[in-house]
Design a protein around this nucleic acid. Structure first.
Lengths: 139, 139
DNA sequence: GTTTCTGCAAATAATTTGCATCCCT
DNA sequence: AGGGATGCAAATTATTTGCAGAAAC
């Protein structure tokens, strides 16, 4: 969690932008898009650019500070929690939630056994309608 | 599997393009992209357009003739096999294979129980290095 | 005949890239 | 000082859309 140390040890420089981006992400459960991160930083960092967010996320992914979620929906979302876990995506409002309480390690082990691949990761997303959108749909 | 009947019963017209696109997809295990489908049709259907492939896939998805795979990698892939099953994606060559032998129905039931969502589907993709790319990487 | 479909070209939107300047180390 | 980082603008790429002509019903 000491991101400065982590960056330095991987040969990257520690910049205010990188710190700020990580702080926006860390511990929150919204799984924001690059745009969402950018918007929440504009206030305090007027010169922040979307390109920097993308470049930073690429580095963060490389050094294991974030997991990039392929949620369909034409834009990536980012998760500070890099341990294997599934997500739920609302097909109506597009929100993405963690799906807690499901152990994926058994599944991953099973995959490693069944598949001829050298397994390195997973993208597990269930689709559905979130409680809030269910309420709205019932008029 | 009678796609003509299916289209008609859902109020869509039966066109040679739609038949051809379905025939390219049906039964193959490559999980092609729109571009791949387009390319394999150009020979026999010189006027085929990429836009038609996209529009057709949208209809096919709506009436349950294909499953759209969110495999990351900035372009969608299409699967004629619409029953719930996981995929394996090679992070090197980007190929997508079916992962046979894993029952996902238990998992889906578990999700429906754990989650407050009304669950409607899933996107389960494991990432790794395919046998062929493993061989290449070993020089 | 009417309505839907096709296919071209133009529009859109997420992401990437080039490059001059800036700032960590 | 020096090399990587930032941030703007332009480029790229997948996908969508508008629309006129063509094809299904």
């Amino acid at each position: 969690m000491d991101i400065a140390q982590k960056l330095r040890s991987e040969g990257y420089k520690v910049t205010p932008q990188r710190i700020a981006i990580y702080q926006v992400l860390y511990g929150q459960n919204e799984h924001p898009t690059a745009e969402m991160i950018y918007q929440s930083l504009r206030r305090d960092h007027p010169t922040m650019s979307l390109a920097t967010v993308y470049k930073t996320m690429e580095i963060f992914e490389k050094i294991g500070l974030v997991k990039v979620l392929d949620t369909g929906d034409d834009c990536s979302r980012y998760d500070w929690d890099t341990h294997n876990h599934p997500h739920m995506r609302c097909v109506v409002c597009k929100r993405v939630d963690d799906l807690d309480g499901m152990d994926m390690d058994d599944t991953l082990a099973q995959v490693a056994e069944l598949s001829q691949y050298k397994v390195t990761g997973q993208q597990i997303t269930f689709e559905g309608i979130c409680p809030e959108c269910q309420r709205k749909e019932a008029h």
